[in-house]
Design a protein around this nucleic acid. Structure first.
Ligand SMILES: [Mn+2]
Ligand SMILES: [Mn+2]
Ligand SMILES: [Zn+2]
Ligand SMILES: [Zn+2]
Lengths: 167, 167
DNA sequence: TTGTGAATCAGCAACGACTGCAGATATGGT
DNA sequence: ACCATATCTGCAGTCGTTGCTGATTCACAA
C-alpha cells in the first residue's frame, strides 16, 4: 500500500468546510474508496456501494467521484481501457497497464531525466508527465502458448477487463 | 515533418497484395492521410474527405482507418481527449498534449533510462512505453491573465478541442 | 420539535464516439 | 458482359458519461 484516499471522517470534514452537506450516500462511497488501493472504475464503485445501499444511483457515484477529483482528493486517469479509472494515490507515480485484462498497477518511481528538450517543445509549457507501460500482467502472460500465439484476443482487441480485474 | 504515412500508391499495393479491392473512397482517404503529418481524429478525416466526396460515410472512414491500423501503417492513440487520434508517425516517439485545446505534438526523443524496476513490476511483461507530457500549447498559454487565472475553462474542463486544433 | 430553503438524489433522457448489421453497390478476374 | 464477393452506406445499437428535473433530505434556525 502506497497511499490511500483520506478517511471518511477527514473527507466529511473537507466537504463540511466547503459548506456542503453530508449524506448517507457519500458516507458509503467514502468508506468504499478508503478501503481500496486499486484503480476502480465508477461502475466498480457503484456495484460495491449497491451491496450496502441498493437504491444508490450510478449518477450519484459519478457525481461524488467527480467532486473528489475536483477537490484534489482523487485522481482520474484514462489509460484507454474504455472507462475512467479513479486513483487514490495522490503521490506522483506512473502505471503499468495489462493490454489483455486492463489491470492497472502503480509504478512509484521517479524518472528525473524525462523532460522535453527546448528544441522540440515548440512553445509548450509542460505541467505533468505521465508514463504508461503496457504489456501483460503475470496472470494474462500465462495464457500464452508455446508457439507464441496468445489464447486471448490478440492485437486490437476491445480488451474488456475481466470481472474483478480492476486492480 | 518526421515521418508520414506511405503514399497512396504504396498503400494501394499493400491492399492489393492482401487480395483487397481498391475503391475511390480508399484512394481519397489515402491521399488525405498522406497529406497530413498531424494526429487527426476520424471525424477530422471525415470532414476532409467529404469535401471531395460528399457521399462518403463516416463508417467507411472508421473502417479504413481501422484497416490501416491493423496493417501497421497507422498508429492509434488515446490521449484522453475524447476521440481516438491516428498517428502516421510509425517511429517510436512520445507526445505533448495541450490540456486546453487538445493539440498533440510529437516528441521524437528516446528515453533509454525509463524502465520498470524488477521489484515493482510484479510479474508484468512490458512491451511498450508511452510518455504523455501535458500542459498548454503556445497558443493556449497566451490566454493566461496576469493574476495567473486562465481565461478558458480551468481544471476539469471538457477540453473540447478548438476547431482545426488537431495537430 | 417543526419549518424552511438550499443541497443532493434518483431516474431517465440525451450525448459523443464507435461498432454491428443488412441491403445496395462496385470491383476485378473470367 | 457476368459473377462472386469485397466494400459501401445508412442506421440502429452499445458504452461510458452527463444534463435535466421533480422528489427527497440535510443543516440550521425558530
Ligand atoms: Mn495509480
Ligand atoms: Mn505522434
Ligand atoms: Zn492481465
Ligand atoms: Zn492548446
Amino acid at each position: 500500500m502506497v497511499l490511500a484516499v483520506k478517511s471518511p471522517a477527514e473527507l466529511t470534514d473537507l466537504f463540511r468546510d466547503r459548506g456542503r452537506k453530508m449524506t448517507a450516500q457519500r458516507q458509503a462511497l467514502f468508506a468504499i474508496l478508503h478501503g481500496t488501493e486499486a484503480h476502480p472504475t465508477a461502475e466498480w464503485v457503484y456495484e460495491r456501494a449497491r451491496r450496502q445501499m441498493p437504491t444508490i444511483s450510478l449518477r450519484t457515484v459519478y457525481q461524488t467521484l467527480n467532486d473528489l477529483v475536483a477537490m484534489g482528493e482523487l485522481e482520474q486517469l484514462d489509460v484507454g481501457t474504455g472507462s475512467a479509472r479513479f486513483d487514490p494515490n495522490l503521490a506522483p507515480h506512473h502505471h503499468l497497464v495489462c493490454d489483455d485484462c486492463g489491470r492497472v498497477q502503480d509504478v512509484p518511481v521517479d524518472f528525473p531525466d524525462v523532460a522535453v528538450p527546448q528544441e522540440v517543445a515548440g512553445g509548450f509549457t509542460v505541467s505533468t508527465t505521465e508514463i504508461v507501460f503496457r504489456g501483460l500482467c503475470a496472470t494474462c502472460a500465462h495464457g500464452t502458448r508455446a508457439d507464441g500465439t496468445a489464447d486471448r484476443a490478440p492485437s486490437q482487441s476491445n480488451h474488456h477487463p475481466h470481472k474483478e480485474c480492476h486492480a
